[in-house]
């Protein structure tokens, strides 16, 4: 049976600078994958290219999701197929509340109208999971949110939209201990409620403590240079990436 996500020989560049130089990655249903690597290795680019960021040009390879070739597909179509990417720096959009945006988004993705009462109920429950004040849903999308609030708002959308695959891009960076704890609870809830797969792009391991990691990949200079199980995380924590960096 084919995997949920299959990335083969993926090459991508931005402004004629090659960032991904042949990435291979397979993620099965419900699996948890961690991607680690030094700064500038192309980790965030990989997440962006999978969901079709038009700023990057795919120069080689392919991406298959749920049996379909999504290489070069429009971002909204990829999102509708069930991939969700959390942003490192979520964008502020005045004039639409977080709650209304989630509702619009949900209706776009499912193609169905949702009863306002049903939506409200789900939103309220999800806000509670993340210990977010319901007042956040009434505020304009990310406008004036602190770094931690923005990250929580991303996880809120993840839980509401229920994708088959979630790519978390440095979701834990810049958060204090309490916020990391809440965010990892949110990610746990996603695993439990939705049972979706995860690709976690991270520098640190704080967010991973409560999760069972299936596979770890080391990305260096636009290529996956090592794969392993959860124990690879500890190895990196102790030794860093030095062993992988060629002179």
């Amino acid at each position: 049976m084919s995997k949920l996500l299959t990335v083969k020989g993926l090459k991508a560049e931005i402004e004629e600078k090659e960032i991904l130089r042949g990435v291979d990655l397979e993620v099965g249903d419900g699996e948890v994958h961690v991607i680690m690597g030094p700064n500038g290795a192309g980790k965030s680019t990989l997440g962006s290219v999978i969901i079709g960021d038009p700023r990057f040009e795919i120069t080689g390879g392919s991406i298959f999701f749920d049996g379909d070739d999504i290489t070069g597909e429009d971002t909204d179509k990829i999102a509708k197929k069930g991939i969700f990417l959390t942003f490192q720096n979520p964008i502020e959009v005045p004039g639409i509340t977080l709650g209304n945006f989630i509702k619009t988004s949900l209706e776009m993705i499912t193609g169905e109208r949702m009863k306002p009462s049903e939506f409200k109920k789900r939103l309220k429950e999800t806000l509670e999971v993340l210990q977010m004040d319901p007042e956040y849903a009434e505020r304009d999308l990310n406008v004036g949110f602190s770094g931690g609030e923005k990250k929580k708002a991303e996880i809120l959308q993840l839980l509401m939209l229920r994708p088959k695959l979630a790519i978390l891009d440095e979701t834990d960076s810049g958060l204090d201990v309490d916020a990391v704890h809440i965010v990892s609870k949110g990610v746990e809830a996603y695993k439990k409620q939705v049972g979706g797969a995860l690709i976690i792009i991270t520098h640190s391991t704080r967010i991973l403590e409560a999760l069972k990691v299936d596979k770890t990949h080391i990305l260096v200079d636009g290529k996956i240079v090592d794969d392993g199980d959860a124990s690879l995380i500890d190895k990196i924590n102790n030794e860093g990436f030095e062993a992988y960096i060629k002179e």
Binding site: I51, D74, D76, A79, F87, V93
Partner: peptide, 26 residues
Amino acid sequence: SDETIFYLMSRGLSETEARALIVRGF
């Protein structure tokens, strides 16, 4: 910005919808 459009499209909005949403908000 292209980044704003990309952000909104990653949540399932078409490019036209994304632009209209930004303008309506504005």
